[in-house]
Design a protein around this nucleic acid. Sequence first.
DNA 1: GATATTGATAACATTATGTTTACACAAATT
DNA 2: AATTTGTGTAAACATAATGTTATCAATATC
Lengths: 226, 226
Amino acid sequence: METKAKRILIADDEPDILEIISYNLIKEGYETYTAKDGNEAIERAKQLNPDLIILDIMMPYKTGLEVCEILRSMPLFENTLIIFLTALSDESSHIKGLEMGADDYVSKPISPKVLISRVNALFRRTHKETDGKTLKIGNISIDPIRFIVEINGEEVMLAKKEFELLYLLASKPGRVFLRNEILSQVWGTDVIVGDRTIDVHIRKIRQKLGIDCITTVKGVGYKFDL
Amino acid sequence: METKAKRILIADDEPDILEIISYNLIKEGYETYTAKDGNEAIERAKQLNPDLIILDIMMPYKTGLEVCEILRSMPLFENTLIIFLTALSDESSHIKGLEMGADDYVSKPISPKVLISRVNALFRRTHKETDGKTLKIGNISIDPIRFIVEINGEEVMLAKKEFELLYLLASKPGRVFLRNEILSQVWGTDVIVGDRTIDVHIRKIRQKLGIDCITTVKGVGYKFDL
DNA sequence: GATATTGATAACATTATGTTTACACAAATT
DNA sequence: AATTTGTGTAAACATAATGTTATCAATATC
């Protein structure tokens, strides 16, 4: 299911809270790091580039709001998820937090269960692939919503990687995709696979589709063409 | 739980308000869309056919009242819910708004809590009409009012979760639902369940229905298909 | 023709899903 | 209140599908 452990940075000045949160998140399979004040939070965020930052509002040196503002101004953290820990009553900083680009907030006193489910929900939300449109080239249609390729009305099911690969190539018909491009788009930048892997998938696609729509450009890459 | 997310269009010229309202409604499980003036509101309403439209009264190009009047004159929006955002003092436009066919109004400054409870209340009120359409696909009918699935006239009883899951998949036949989507739509965002739970329910549905109408798309999700 | 690159195939590894059982819990029944 | 029944979830394991690698043959390019 999981591709790789998400990294979570937790910033709070109370060691007990850090420990409880950290313990529970680790139990959920996350990787956690901690900071005990605003300055340390910024410093560690830069080092770690975490997927999610949990910020207490009331912290020494810099408040969570200030930390958030600073981080959000850096391109690196533009899309990093941020959750605030707020005192129950404090409605105003809650609104400020959202304006500042927080993704969620959790009221103190903290229930580990609630926090965890919020964290999971956030990751779920961002994972939601905003599927693309149905591609139609000639007599082929590639529909990422139904996950089906149709050739002259005949349905063909491809496996996930095969589909992703075909979808990429077909997204710009005629254009050659370098093997590197294919790797980073379909496999992601942090996955290492051997040279022959792409070929094998290409072969399976050709085989399943039955028609010749992928052209090899030797020494360069592949392109979709009819 | 939820059968499908309601679509809400929010029209206001203040980006901050759009964001806060949107954020809170999303957190409630709604799907939100925004418009920043009267003209855009009409345009997007036509595109989206939302379940509810939240209209600020004071907007550029067309006021909320004008937008409401225009929309209400179209058959498509005869029954669409409309909520006005009004300045607290402005009693007169409030009355006009109700005359014009608004379903509710909320005074500024807006408290997210209040707005959300009004929105929920409105949907509750209209719940039965909007929510429970009987789905009919081929020889299967899925009736959420009687909570019964019929296959060739033969009644099959499903448990609650099973029914909700089937109803979700069947609401968009052919479309693949990611496991994440299924989780948040059927279980809600605040619930943690194990990985195998969805499978187990799918299995029970398949077993009880006896026919093959749910297709697995490995690594992606499930879809309803005959 | 020599070299580099890709195609084909099968073996292998890895994942995702299917299946079953057990158990907690709530609702219904007695 | 006690019992039964049904539902939802977790855990453990089996299975099937997919993804990857290794190997060697085929092919283009120089």
